[in-house]
Amino acid sequence: MLLPDLFPTSTAFAEATGWKIEPHGACKGDLCLPLAPGTYREERVDAATVADRLGMAVVPAEGGGLWAIGPESFSGRALATVAAPDLKLQTFDGKAFALSSLRGTRMVLVAWAPY
């Protein structure tokens, strides 16, 4: 997740990380972790505090002006839940495609690369 500052909207945070910031905590699938009071205020998320809670690294860009937040690591595993992330990607002909559009169908997702 790339950020110009560390106070994104909750919507932007959820779209980029898969973690929704709810009144009772940070939630992904059926998993919720409580957050300290004040972490979420006026639609903005204190990303550094949430990142610390979820084991997400916060890395400044070379030269400044930009931050990247890595994926959660609090569980010690790449997957903290089996709920599939709803990635929104594009097809090769430029159309938007949400993985969740195939909910209700079994899916084999194959990652490849031309290198």
């Binding site: 595993r77 993985l99 084999v108 990652a111």
Partner: peptide, 19 residues
């Protein structure tokens, strides 16, 4: 999102959108 560290790799996702 899926923990892919080399390619090609595949992930199975069921009807309930669970891995």
């Amino acid at each position: 999102a899926f923990g892919v560290v080399n390619i090609p790799n595949a992930v199975w996702i069921d009807e309930h959108f669970n891995i």
